[in-house]
Design a protein around this nucleic acid. Structure first.
Lengths: 107, 107
DNA sequence: ATTATATATTGCAATATTACGATAATAGAG
DNA sequence: CTCTATTATCGTAATATTGCAATATATAAT
């Protein structure tokens, strides 16, 4: 045991949970906030700013990319990671639909 | 290692990540949706509906309670778990603030 | 070509999460 | 009180996540 039984849930439930899960780590919240505050957003800045090892930051960036929230462009010898605004709005809308549809029948 | 370094993040970041994390499992998404669709919402229904063991459902309910999303009332010999609508709206607002404040500077 | 800089990947240890059987606790029915 | 039904908790196994050092990869500068 220990494995999440994804197969007993709908794709919508699994996708929704996946979005929430990726956002469910303070480092990834902090990364998104920091990128949003900066004009440049290379990974090395994040390492200094956030205080986790470079390998760890790189791993968190990979997870944010996995749901399409970040896009990275090579810029000289560093990377420019930026928020994918279309995907950002798309996910926000999904989450709001879930919140709005799931608040009936309170006792 | 393996422990999340909560101490290097702000309370706001940790709280936000905690909300996302609790919602980041398909069983908990499914539980919330099911409770919202029913008039009664006792745990035993959930076990049959969702298809996880009773102990597992109970554990997921506990996590949803931990962020205040559910309130449970004893009703006869069973429990009536319901969505705490004030908390629900409160958390939705928090998440939307995060989304709205964190979408600047896209390249 | 060599060196320096920036990011990604690999491998591993520590911790957390998921799931379930067994058992405890609680409340109503008889 | 005893039995049954419902939910919570405990203990444990399996899997996932977090974090980092070491290493690989890639590009720019010299």
């Amino acid at each position: 045991m220990g494995i999440t039984k994804s197969q007993i849930f709908t794709k919508q439930q699994n996708d929704l949970a996946q979005f929430f899960k990726v956002l469910g780590h303070p480092a990834r919240v902090a990364i998104l906030q920091y990128i949003s505050e900066q004009n440049s957003c290379i990974c090395n800045d994040l390492v200094e700013e956030i205080g986790l090892a470079q390998a760890t930051i790189s791993q968190h960036l990979k997870e944010l990319k996995s749901i399409g929230l970040l896009k990275g462009e090579i810029e000289g010898k560093s990377m420019c990671y930026c928020i994918n605004i279309d995907r950002w709005n798309d996910i926000q809308n999904h989450l709001n639909s879930f919140f709005n549809n799931t608040k009936q029948n309170c006792c």
